[in-house]
Protein backbone atom coordinates (compact mmCIF):
# COMPACT_ATOMS: atom_id res chain seq x y z
CA UNK A 1 0.00 0.00 0.00
CA UNK A 2 2.82 2.38 0.84
CA UNK A 3 4.34 1.83 -2.61
CA UNK A 4 1.01 2.52 -4.29
CA UNK A 5 0.39 5.70 -2.26
CA UNK A 6 3.92 6.91 -3.06
CA UNK A 7 3.17 6.25 -6.70
CA UNK A 8 -0.21 8.03 -6.84
CA UNK A 9 0.32 10.86 -4.33
CA UNK A 10 3.98 11.64 -4.81
CA UNK A 11 4.04 10.59 -8.49
CA UNK A 12 7.13 8.52 -7.80
CA UNK A 13 7.27 5.74 -10.34
CA UNK A 14 10.06 3.82 -11.92
CA UNK A 15 8.30 3.73 -15.25
CA UNK A 16 7.35 6.66 -17.44
CA UNK A 17 4.91 5.57 -20.13
CA UNK A 18 4.36 7.15 -23.53
CA UNK A 19 1.89 10.07 -23.79
CA UNK A 20 -1.66 9.15 -24.78
CA UNK A 21 -1.83 8.33 -28.49
CA UNK A 22 1.88 7.52 -28.74
CA UNK A 23 3.54 4.17 -28.13
CA UNK A 24 6.73 2.18 -28.20
CA UNK A 25 6.82 -0.52 -30.85
CA UNK A 26 9.18 -3.30 -31.64
CA UNK A 27 7.69 -4.21 -34.98
CA UNK A 28 10.22 -3.62 -37.69
CA UNK A 29 8.36 -1.33 -40.08
CA UNK A 30 11.47 -0.99 -42.22
CA UNK A 31 10.92 -4.52 -43.42
CA UNK A 32 7.44 -3.58 -44.65
CA UNK A 33 8.82 -0.39 -46.14
CA UNK A 34 11.44 -2.37 -48.06
CA UNK A 35 8.83 -4.67 -49.57
CA UNK A 36 6.61 -1.78 -50.63
CA UNK A 37 9.44 0.40 -51.91
CA UNK A 38 10.70 -2.48 -54.07
CA UNK A 39 7.31 -2.55 -55.82
CA UNK A 40 7.04 1.20 -56.38
CA UNK A 41 10.67 1.58 -57.49
CA UNK A 42 10.10 -1.08 -60.12
CA UNK A 43 7.32 1.18 -61.41
CA UNK A 44 9.58 4.20 -61.71
CA UNK A 45 8.90 6.01 -58.42
CA UNK A 46 11.70 7.94 -56.70
CA UNK A 47 12.08 8.39 -52.95
CA UNK A 48 11.56 11.78 -51.30
CA UNK A 49 12.14 12.74 -47.68
CA UNK A 50 10.26 15.78 -46.36
CA UNK A 51 10.89 18.00 -43.30
CA UNK A 52 9.44 16.72 -40.05
CA UNK A 53 8.15 20.22 -39.23
CA UNK A 54 6.43 22.65 -41.54
CA UNK A 55 4.89 26.09 -41.37
CA UNK A 56 1.39 26.31 -39.90
CA UNK A 57 0.44 28.44 -42.87
CA UNK A 58 1.08 25.57 -45.32
CA UNK A 59 -1.60 23.43 -43.69
CA UNK A 60 -3.92 26.31 -42.90
CA UNK A 61 -3.96 27.11 -46.61
CA UNK A 62 -4.85 23.61 -47.70
CA UNK A 63 -6.89 21.86 -45.02
CA UNK A 64 -10.48 22.44 -43.97
CA UNK A 65 -11.46 23.60 -40.49
CA UNK A 66 -12.11 20.01 -39.44
CA UNK A 67 -8.54 18.97 -40.20
CA UNK A 68 -6.80 22.07 -38.86
CA UNK A 69 -8.30 21.21 -35.45
CA UNK A 70 -6.13 18.11 -35.58
CA UNK A 71 -2.82 19.92 -35.98
CA UNK A 72 -0.21 19.95 -33.26
CA UNK A 73 1.29 23.43 -33.19
CA UNK A 74 4.65 24.49 -31.72
CA UNK A 75 6.72 27.67 -31.89
CA UNK A 76 10.30 27.85 -33.08
CA UNK A 77 13.00 30.13 -31.63
CA UNK A 78 11.78 33.09 -33.70
CA UNK A 79 8.15 32.62 -32.57
CA UNK A 80 7.12 31.18 -35.94
CA UNK A 81 4.23 28.69 -35.65
CA UNK A 82 5.31 25.27 -36.87
CA UNK A 83 3.41 22.03 -37.27
CA UNK A 84 4.87 18.52 -36.94
CA UNK A 85 3.95 17.31 -40.42
CA UNK A 86 0.27 16.41 -40.65
CA UNK A 87 0.19 15.35 -44.28
CA UNK A 88 3.11 14.62 -46.58
CA UNK A 89 1.21 15.08 -49.88
CA UNK A 90 0.81 18.79 -49.12
CA UNK A 91 4.56 19.10 -48.54
CA UNK A 92 5.43 17.35 -51.79
CA UNK A 93 3.03 19.47 -53.86
CA UNK A 94 4.43 22.61 -52.26
CA UNK A 95 8.05 21.42 -52.82
CA UNK A 96 7.39 20.95 -56.55
CA UNK A 97 5.83 24.42 -56.96
CA UNK A 98 9.00 26.37 -57.81
CA UNK A 99 10.51 23.41 -59.71
CA UNK A 100 7.58 22.28 -61.83
CA UNK A 101 8.92 23.79 -65.07
CA UNK A 102 12.32 22.16 -64.61
CA UNK A 103 11.23 18.58 -63.98
CA UNK A 104 10.15 15.91 -66.42
CA UNK A 105 6.46 15.11 -66.01
CA UNK A 106 4.93 13.05 -64.68
CA UNK A 107 6.79 13.21 -61.39
CA UNK A 108 6.45 9.93 -59.52
CA UNK A 109 7.49 10.05 -55.87
CA UNK A 110 7.13 7.87 -52.82
CA UNK A 111 7.83 8.48 -49.15
CA UNK A 112 7.93 6.76 -45.78
CA UNK A 113 7.66 8.63 -42.52
CA UNK A 114 5.61 9.70 -39.53
CA UNK A 115 2.72 12.14 -39.56
CA UNK A 116 1.28 13.66 -36.39
CA UNK A 117 -2.39 14.19 -35.72
CA UNK A 118 -4.28 15.34 -32.65
CA UNK A 119 -7.71 13.74 -32.89
CA UNK A 120 -10.50 14.46 -30.40
CA UNK A 121 -10.41 10.92 -29.15
CA UNK A 122 -7.65 9.83 -26.81
CA UNK A 123 -7.98 6.34 -28.25
CA UNK A 124 -6.62 7.24 -31.65
CA UNK A 125 -3.00 7.09 -32.68
CA UNK A 126 -1.36 10.50 -32.84
CA UNK A 127 1.82 9.36 -34.55
CA UNK A 128 1.14 7.43 -37.73
CA UNK A 129 3.76 5.75 -39.89
CA UNK A 130 2.85 6.26 -43.51
CA UNK A 131 4.03 4.89 -46.81
CA UNK A 132 2.70 6.99 -49.68
CA UNK A 133 2.98 7.56 -53.41
CA UNK A 134 2.20 10.60 -55.56
CA UNK A 135 2.00 11.06 -59.33
CA UNK A 136 2.00 14.68 -60.43
CA UNK A 137 1.52 15.63 -64.07
CA UNK A 138 -0.54 12.65 -65.18
CA UNK A 139 -4.27 12.04 -65.27
CA UNK A 140 -3.85 8.28 -65.54
CA UNK A 141 -6.02 7.19 -62.59
CA UNK A 142 -5.70 3.50 -63.46
CA UNK A 143 -1.97 3.60 -62.73
CA UNK A 144 -2.41 4.78 -59.15
CA UNK A 145 -5.38 2.52 -58.47
CA UNK A 146 -3.59 -0.58 -59.73
CA UNK A 147 -0.52 0.37 -57.68
CA UNK A 148 -2.73 0.64 -54.59
CA UNK A 149 -3.97 -2.87 -55.28
CA UNK A 150 -0.44 -4.24 -55.67
CA UNK A 151 0.63 -2.72 -52.36
CA UNK A 152 -2.49 -3.92 -50.52
CA UNK A 153 -1.98 -7.43 -51.89
CA UNK A 154 1.63 -7.35 -50.72
CA UNK A 155 0.48 -6.29 -47.24
CA UNK A 156 -1.97 -9.17 -47.22
CA UNK A 157 0.76 -11.57 -48.26
CA UNK A 158 2.91 -10.24 -45.41
CA UNK A 159 -0.08 -10.73 -43.07
CA UNK A 160 0.05 -7.06 -42.11
CA UNK A 161 -3.60 -6.67 -43.13
CA UNK A 162 -6.53 -9.06 -43.57
CA UNK A 163 -9.44 -8.78 -45.97
CA UNK A 164 -9.95 -5.26 -47.24
CA UNK A 165 -12.60 -3.12 -48.86
CA UNK A 166 -12.08 0.07 -50.88
CA UNK A 167 -14.80 2.65 -50.20
CA UNK A 168 -14.87 5.54 -52.65
CA UNK A 169 -16.72 8.61 -53.84
CA UNK A 170 -16.26 11.58 -56.18
CA UNK A 171 -16.07 15.21 -55.12
CA UNK A 172 -18.61 16.21 -57.77
CA UNK A 173 -21.26 14.22 -55.88
CA UNK A 174 -20.91 16.27 -52.69
CA UNK A 175 -20.42 19.49 -54.71
CA UNK A 176 -23.73 18.89 -56.50
CA UNK A 177 -25.51 17.99 -53.29
CA UNK A 178 -24.34 21.24 -51.70
CA UNK A 179 -24.88 23.44 -54.75
CA UNK A 180 -26.15 26.87 -53.76
CA UNK A 181 -24.91 26.61 -50.16
CA UNK A 182 -22.72 29.38 -48.78
CA UNK A 183 -19.33 28.33 -47.38
CA UNK A 184 -20.51 28.07 -43.75
CA UNK A 185 -23.60 26.04 -44.60
CA UNK A 186 -21.53 23.74 -46.75
CA UNK A 187 -19.05 23.20 -43.94
CA UNK A 188 -21.83 22.40 -41.46
CA UNK A 189 -23.55 20.11 -43.95
CA UNK A 190 -20.32 18.20 -44.65
CA UNK A 191 -19.52 17.77 -40.95
CA UNK A 192 -23.05 16.47 -40.25
CA UNK A 193 -22.70 14.16 -43.22
CA UNK A 194 -19.34 12.89 -41.94
CA UNK A 195 -21.25 11.18 -39.10
CA UNK A 196 -24.43 10.68 -41.19
CA UNK A 197 -26.44 12.82 -38.76
CA UNK A 198 -29.37 12.79 -41.16
CA UNK A 199 -31.85 13.86 -38.47
CA UNK A 200 -30.01 17.16 -37.98
CA UNK A 201 -29.49 17.56 -41.75
CA UNK A 202 -33.26 17.17 -42.21
CA UNK A 203 -34.00 19.71 -39.48
CA UNK A 204 -31.45 22.25 -40.69
CA UNK A 205 -31.50 21.80 -44.46
CA UNK A 206 -35.10 20.68 -45.15
CA UNK A 207 -35.58 19.38 -48.71
CA UNK A 208 -31.88 18.72 -49.19
CA UNK A 209 -32.03 16.52 -46.11
CA UNK A 210 -34.77 14.41 -47.68
CA UNK A 211 -32.63 13.87 -50.75
CA UNK A 212 -29.67 12.77 -48.63
CA UNK A 213 -31.88 10.40 -46.60
CA UNK A 214 -33.11 8.81 -49.80
CA UNK A 215 -29.57 8.30 -51.07
CA UNK A 216 -28.50 6.79 -47.76
CA UNK A 217 -31.45 4.45 -47.73
CA UNK A 218 -30.58 3.26 -51.23
CA UNK A 219 -26.91 2.92 -50.27
CA UNK A 220 -27.92 0.52 -47.50
CA UNK A 221 -30.23 -1.54 -49.71
CA UNK A 222 -28.63 -1.60 -53.11
CA UNK A 223 -25.48 -2.64 -54.91
CA UNK A 224 -22.81 -0.07 -55.77
CA UNK A 225 -23.92 -0.14 -59.45
CA UNK A 226 -27.53 0.69 -58.53
CA UNK A 227 -26.42 3.44 -56.18
CA UNK A 228 -24.26 4.92 -58.95
CA UNK A 229 -27.27 4.98 -61.30
CA UNK A 230 -29.40 6.70 -58.67
CA UNK A 231 -26.73 9.29 -57.93
CA UNK A 232 -26.11 10.04 -61.61
CA UNK A 233 -29.85 10.50 -62.10
CA UNK A 234 -29.80 13.11 -59.34
CA UNK A 235 -26.63 15.02 -60.12
CA UNK A 236 -26.55 14.60 -63.90
CA UNK A 237 -24.44 12.33 -66.07
CA UNK A 238 -20.76 12.71 -65.40
CA UNK A 239 -18.45 10.74 -67.66
CA UNK A 240 -15.60 11.00 -65.20
CA UNK A 241 -17.68 9.49 -62.43
CA UNK A 242 -18.77 6.62 -64.61
CA UNK A 243 -15.25 6.02 -65.87
CA UNK A 244 -13.79 6.31 -62.38
CA UNK A 245 -16.33 3.81 -61.09
CA UNK A 246 -15.54 1.34 -63.87
CA UNK A 247 -11.80 1.73 -63.24
CA UNK A 248 -12.28 0.89 -59.55
CA UNK A 249 -14.52 -2.05 -60.41
CA UNK A 250 -12.05 -3.38 -63.01
CA UNK A 251 -9.18 -3.19 -60.55
CA UNK A 252 -10.74 -4.31 -57.27
CA UNK A 253 -13.75 -6.40 -58.38
CA UNK A 254 -16.03 -7.13 -55.44
CA UNK A 255 -13.75 -5.37 -53.01
CA UNK A 256 -15.23 -1.94 -53.80
CA UNK A 257 -18.09 -0.05 -52.27
CA UNK A 258 -19.36 3.19 -53.76
CA UNK A 259 -20.55 5.42 -50.91
CA UNK A 260 -21.96 8.65 -52.34
CA UNK A 261 -22.05 10.21 -48.87
CA UNK A 262 -18.42 9.44 -48.01
CA UNK A 263 -16.75 12.66 -46.86
CA UNK A 264 -13.07 13.06 -47.76
CA UNK A 265 -10.59 13.29 -44.89
CA UNK A 266 -8.69 16.01 -46.75
CA UNK A 267 -10.63 18.77 -48.42
CA UNK A 268 -8.13 19.14 -51.28
CA UNK A 269 -9.49 16.28 -53.39
CA UNK A 270 -11.23 17.10 -56.66
CA UNK A 271 -12.20 13.84 -58.32
CA UNK A 272 -12.22 10.30 -57.07
CA UNK A 273 -11.18 9.73 -53.44
CA UNK A 274 -11.12 6.57 -51.38
CA UNK A 275 -10.48 4.98 -48.01
CA UNK A 276 -9.48 1.38 -47.43
CA UNK A 277 -10.73 -0.56 -44.42
CA UNK A 278 -9.26 -3.89 -43.41
CA UNK A 279 -10.74 -6.64 -41.27
CA UNK A 280 -7.97 -6.49 -38.64
CA UNK A 281 -8.03 -2.76 -37.85
CA UNK A 282 -10.75 -0.35 -36.77
CA UNK A 283 -9.25 2.68 -38.52
CA UNK A 284 -8.83 2.90 -42.29
CA UNK A 285 -5.53 1.42 -43.49
CA UNK A 286 -5.18 3.75 -46.48
CA UNK A 287 -6.70 6.81 -48.09
CA UNK A 288 -6.09 8.91 -51.14
CA UNK A 289 -7.51 10.42 -54.27
CA UNK A 290 -7.12 12.94 -57.03
CA UNK A 291 -5.97 16.41 -55.95
CA UNK A 292 -5.33 18.66 -58.98
CA UNK A 293 -6.69 21.64 -57.04
CA UNK A 294 -3.94 21.30 -54.42
CA UNK A 295 -1.32 22.13 -57.06
CA UNK A 296 -3.21 25.38 -57.74
CA UNK A 297 -2.82 26.38 -54.10
CA UNK A 298 0.92 26.33 -54.66
CA UNK A 299 0.99 28.28 -57.91
CA UNK A 300 0.77 25.71 -60.69
CA UNK A 301 -1.82 23.55 -62.34
CA UNK A 302 -1.28 19.84 -62.89
CA UNK A 303 -3.24 16.64 -62.66
CA UNK A 304 -2.18 14.82 -59.51
CA UNK A 305 -3.14 11.76 -57.54
CA UNK A 306 -1.80 9.68 -54.70
CA UNK A 307 -2.47 7.75 -51.54
CA UNK A 308 -0.98 6.97 -48.17
CA UNK A 309 -0.98 3.67 -46.34
CA UNK A 310 -1.00 3.85 -42.54
CA UNK A 311 1.34 1.08 -41.47
CA UNK A 312 -0.27 -0.55 -38.40
Amino acid sequence: MKRFLRSIILSKHNVIGAPSGFSFKQRNCLEIFNHLSEIVESEGFNYIDTPMFDFFEVYERTLGTYSTKELFVVKDESNEFLVPRYDITTQIVRFLGPRINDVKLPVKLYYFGDVFRAPDSEWHRKQIKQFGVEIIGSSNEEEIVSLLKKLLEKLRELKVIGEYIVVFNFTVVLDKLTEGFDAEDKELFIELLRVRDLTSILKVFGEKGKEISEIFKEFLRRSSEDVLKLVLSKIGAYDNVNKGFQAMRACFGDRILFDPLLVPQMNYYNGVYFVVYTSNSNDPIASGGRYDSLTQKFGYSQSAMGFAIDIP
Binding site: I165, L198, S213, E214, F216, K217, L220, R221, D259, S279
Partner: peptide, 28 residues
Protein backbone atom coordinates in the same frame (compact mmCIF):
# COMPACT_ATOMS: atom_id res chain seq x y z
CA UNK B 1 -22.83 2.11 -36.09
CA UNK B 2 -19.11 1.65 -36.21
CA UNK B 3 -17.85 3.07 -39.53
CA UNK B 4 -15.91 -0.01 -40.58
CA UNK B 5 -18.81 -2.28 -39.60
CA UNK B 6 -21.19 -0.41 -41.89
CA UNK B 7 -18.92 -1.13 -44.84
CA UNK B 8 -17.92 -4.70 -43.94
CA UNK B 9 -21.37 -5.80 -42.73
CA UNK B 10 -23.58 -3.63 -44.89
CA UNK B 11 -26.23 -6.25 -45.63
CA UNK B 12 -26.58 -7.34 -41.98
CA UNK B 13 -26.76 -3.77 -40.74
CA UNK B 14 -29.16 -2.84 -43.52
CA UNK B 15 -31.45 -5.69 -42.39
CA UNK B 16 -31.45 -4.41 -38.81
CA UNK B 17 -32.11 -0.84 -39.96
CA UNK B 18 -34.98 -2.01 -42.18
CA UNK B 19 -36.56 -3.97 -39.32
CA UNK B 20 -36.29 -1.07 -36.91
CA UNK B 21 -37.46 1.46 -39.51
CA UNK B 22 -40.56 -0.52 -40.32
CA UNK B 23 -41.41 -1.01 -36.68
CA UNK B 24 -40.95 2.71 -36.09
CA UNK B 25 -42.95 3.32 -39.25
CA UNK B 26 -40.19 5.71 -40.04
CA UNK B 27 -38.63 5.83 -43.48
CA UNK B 28 -35.17 7.07 -42.46
Amino acid sequence: SNKKSLYFKKSEISEIVEKISSSLNNSL
